[in-house]
Simulated assay, not measured.
Amino acid sequence: MTDRALRLLLRDTRLAELAAYPFDFDVERAGYGPVEPVRLAAGGTLRIVAGDAGGGTYFVCEDDSLRF
């Protein structure tokens, strides 16, 4: 996931709704955060970008890779 794609999802509600359903990538759920504390085993930072209906959280790692 690129920063450009995330910016588009945050700016365009139609695209954000499409990502939320049927793909279950809901940028509005980013504010809820993870249920438990999360960290990378190798260290580094995580940025929450979205959540899913099952309580999962999507993160972007400091190297800009997407993790679930």
Rank of each mutant, 00 (worst) to 15 (best):
V38R: 10
D63F: 03
G51V: 00
T57A: 08
L46M: 08
R7W: 08
L8N: 13
A53I: 08
L66W: 03
L8E: 15
L18F: 10
V49T: 07
R67A: 14
D52T: 03
D52Q: 04
F68L: 14
R67V: 09
P22F: 03
D3C: 05
V27W: 00
M1V: 13
S65E: 13
R29G: 01
Y21S: 15
G44L: 07
G54V: 05
Y58Q: 01
A50Y: 02
V27T: 10
E62F: 06
M1Y: 06
R7I: 14
R4Y: 10
L9Q: 01
E62Y: 05
E36K: 08
P37E: 12
R11Y: 06
E17Q: 12
D52A: 05
V35G: 07
R67W: 11
G51F: 00
E62K: 03
L40I: 11
Y32G: 08
A20C: 04
T13F: 04
D3W: 09
A16Y: 03
L18H: 06
F23R: 05
T13E: 15
R4C: 03
R14G: 06
F23Y: 15
V60C: 06
L66G: 01
E62W: 06
F59K: 05
A53D: 11
F68K: 12
D52K: 01
G55I: 04
R47L: 09
A5E: 13
D3T: 13
L10C: 10
D63E: 11
M1T: 09
Y21P: 00
T13L: 10
F59W: 13
A53T: 09
A5I: 11
G31R: 13
M1C: 11
A19C: 05
A5R: 10
D52F: 03
P37L: 05
D64H: 12
R7F: 08
L6E: 05
G44F: 05
V27P: 00
A50E: 01
P37W: 02
V38M: 12
G31N: 06
T2W: 05
T13Y: 04
A20K: 03
P22A: 04
F25D: 00
T57M: 03
A20I: 01
Y58G: 00
D64F: 06
V38N: 11
Y32M: 11
L18Y: 08
D64Y: 05
E17F: 02
F25T: 01
L18K: 08
A42K: 11
L15R: 09
L10Y: 09
V38L: 10
A5P: 00
A53V: 07
E62Q: 14
D24M: 03
V38Y: 07
G31C: 06
R14I: 07
A16C: 11
R39E: 14
G43N: 10
V35M: 10
V49A: 04
E17N: 13
E17R: 13
V60N: 01
G33Q: 10
Y32W: 08
D26F: 01
G54L: 14
F25A: 01
G51W: 01
L18G: 03
T45L: 14
L40Y: 08
L40Q: 15
R11F: 07
R47C: 06
L66M: 13
A19G: 02
F25P: 00
A30R: 09
G43D: 10
A41P: 04
P22C: 04
L6S: 03
G54M: 12
V60Q: 12
F68A: 13
A42P: 01
G51Q: 00
T57V: 15
